[in-house]
Design a protein around this nucleic acid. Structure first.
Length: 563
DNA sequence: GGTGAAGTGGTTTTT
DNA sequence: CCACTTCACC
């Protein structure tokens, strides 16, 4: 197998530079995952033992993709390579040390514990749980009142022999420090995906794991750091070279996703940031069409414009459009599918508005977010209730059947569960159930983006990171939304600009930026101004459409927003 | 300690 | 607009 096949020079260099600290600067659409996967394969081909290789990610989605693609290259040799999230690594270390399965608390269990301890209202308790989590992740300090609750919680948690998700990071750091002879986790070659997003605790975790090796590879992009609010520390990435002396920095500069106009426009925008590693990207793609900036009278017409633009490209699905296409506008070939489109917004509230409009118009869509979380939660609860009265032996097929009656599992879960039952077939029922709970907590993704379904994607800008679409709409490109302003706190303009940059660079062929001049917000009609970031995109890359406020028109003209 | 009027603020999210 | 907090007053 040719490991360097199809790679460009920069990617090849990143793959073959394995000795000592390496920083791979991987902008959007530069083949980051491909490079990491080939690098893993390269290490194995060089004779490095698979169990000495570690690749950590933040999300299950990323871990799964990396794992599958590595498996496609290496087959069964992939199995002893640790490819997984920080949390999965953490619990693996903890269970290795303790020698048995651990009881893991998710947010719901934490909440229940806090409520039973304090009697707080559920909202207050939830805020406290979140605060405890931030404290454990060193995102914020601990004031004296919180301290009392914190200690109370910790004591009760230890009494119950339970661990929360944050413990999966903090405790392994202690374990690795105390037991310098944790041979199973003496990784020689460490790769950290999305290095720009690591928080202080994850940083310490990496530093501790990497004490005995020099071969640490950070992969990421300073321009896509968008999680400061949950503790991401961009400086870790920017200081990598000083932090690990002798670092070889390799930038992947060939861009494969967006047209030249979209790429150049987003590059010019992000160049307004100070905190970055200035690498310039060049695309292999054609010039493309200009970015369309649409000024609309209000939020409703914004939704309408999106629907109309989708229908225009798809050939029409509403009765109106179907009629129109059949009579006069048939193009013979439908060049776009619904799954080619994404609508990106700043807040979930906007996403709901867009989703409702799409529903009305009959356009199929999926929302990316944390919606499916509750289904996993239900399964976990079910398994946890089983732990209390376990039978001697467990008939898995019977169990599956029972749950399908009760309607507890949907077909998508079935496969995952069947695999799990096979995997844990030899374990005791208790062990198996524990393992399955972990599996659902730590390996099944809550975001559930289905890339196969032919539906339009509706997502926040944050949740769209890592995805790509032929046509991207960014709605609500207004001052106050992008950048998002609250009355109180000052905005981090660079962070907001990065978020907008992430949104723009999701687009392959077409990018449409929409803003309303007036919007119904919090019950008030408010006058809106376009986002200041629009000014930062040079005119040569854009075309403007101004949709005037609709004066009373004949019904037949209402469908056409653009002349 | 409990009630109602007045005041305030409203994002982003993984494991 | 709506959910929540604050504060004056009983």
């Amino acid at each position: 197998m040719k490991i360097l096949e199809g790679l460009n020079d920069f990617q090849s260099k990143a793959v073959t530079t394995v000795e000592g600290p390496v920083l791979v600067v991987a902008g959007p659409g530069t083949g980051k995952t491909l490079t990491i996967v080939r690098r893993i394969a390269y290490l194995v081909e060089q004779g490095i033992k698979p169990e000495h290789i570690l690749a950590v990610t933040f999300t299950n989605r990323a871990a799964r993709e990396m794992c599958e693609r590595t498996y496609a290259l290496l087959g069964s040799r992939t199995q002893t390579i640790f490819i997984g999230t920080f949390h999965l690594l953490g619990i693996t270390i903890m269970e290795h040390v303790s020698g048995h399965e651990l009881l893991l608390y998710g947010r719901d269990e934490q909440l229940e514990l806090i409520r039973s301890l304090t009697g707080l209202t559920s909202k207050k308790a939830f805020q406290l749980v979140e605060k405890i989590s931030r404290i454990k992740n060193c995102i914020e300090g601990c004031d004296s009142t919180t301290r009392e609750f914190f200690d109370l919680y910790e004591e009760a948690r230890k009494d119950r022999k339970a661990y929360d998700l944050d413990d999966l990071l903090t405790i392994p750091i202690q374990l690795l420090q105390d037991k310098s002879d944790l041979e199973a986790f003496q990784f020689q070659y460490i790769m950290v995906d999305e290095y720009q997003d690591i928080n202080p605790v994850q940083y310490k975790f990496i530093k501790t794991l990497g004490r005995k090796t020099q071969h640490i590879c950070g992969v990421g992009d300073a321009d896509q750091s968008i999680y400061a609010f949950r503790g991401s520390h961009l400086e870790n990435f920017l200081n990598f070279t000083d932090d690990f002396p002798g670092t070889k920095q390799i930038a992947l500069t060939h861009h494969y996703r967006s047209t030249e106009k979209i790429l150049h426009a987003s590059q010019r925008l992000i160049e307004h940031n100070q905190k970055r590693i200035g690498t310039s990207l060049s695309t292999i793609r054609e010039e493309g069409v200009p970015i369309t900036i649409v000024s609309l009278p209000d939020g409703h017409t914004e939704c309408y414009a999106i629907i109309e633009e989708i229908e225009k490209r798809i050939g029409g699905t509403s009765h109106y459009m179907l009629m129109k296409r059949n009579i006069s506008n048939h193009r013979g070939e439908i060049s776009y599918r619904f799954s080619d489109f994404a609508v990106l917004v700043r807040t979930n509230g906007q996403a709901t508005e867009i989703a409702e409009s799409l529903k009305m118009s009959g356009i199929p869509f999926q929302r990316i977010g944390r919606i499916t979380y509750s289904r996993n939660r239900e399964l976990i609860n079910h398994f946890q209730s089983m732990l209390s009265n376990l039978p001697e032996t467990l008939d898995y097929s019977l169990l599956m059947k029972e749950m399908e009656k009760k309607g507890k599992i949907v077909p998508e879960d079935r496969e995952l569960m069947e695999n799990l039952f096979v995997a844990y077939g030899n374990a005791s029922p208790r062990e198996a159930i524990h393992a399955i709970i972990h599996e659902f907590m730590l390996r099944s993704s809550g975001d559930e983006f289905n890339s196969n379904a032919d539906v339009v994607t509706v997502s926040t800008l944050h949740a769209a990171k890592g995805l790509e679409f032929r046509v991207v709409f960014i709605a609500g490109v207004e001052d106050g939304l992008i950048p998002f302003r609250t009355s109180q706190e000052t905005v981090d303009m660079e962070e907001e600009r990065r978020l907008f940059y992430v949104g723009m660079t999701r687009a392959k062929d077409e990018l449409l930026l929409l803003y309303a001049r007036e919007r119904f917000l919090y019950g008030n009609r408010s006058i809106r101004l376009p986002s200041p970031f629009i000014q930062e995109i040079p005119e040569e890359y854009v075309q403007h459409i101004f949709v005037p406020e609709r004066v009373k028109e004949k019904k037949s003209n209402q469908m056409e927003l653009f002349s």
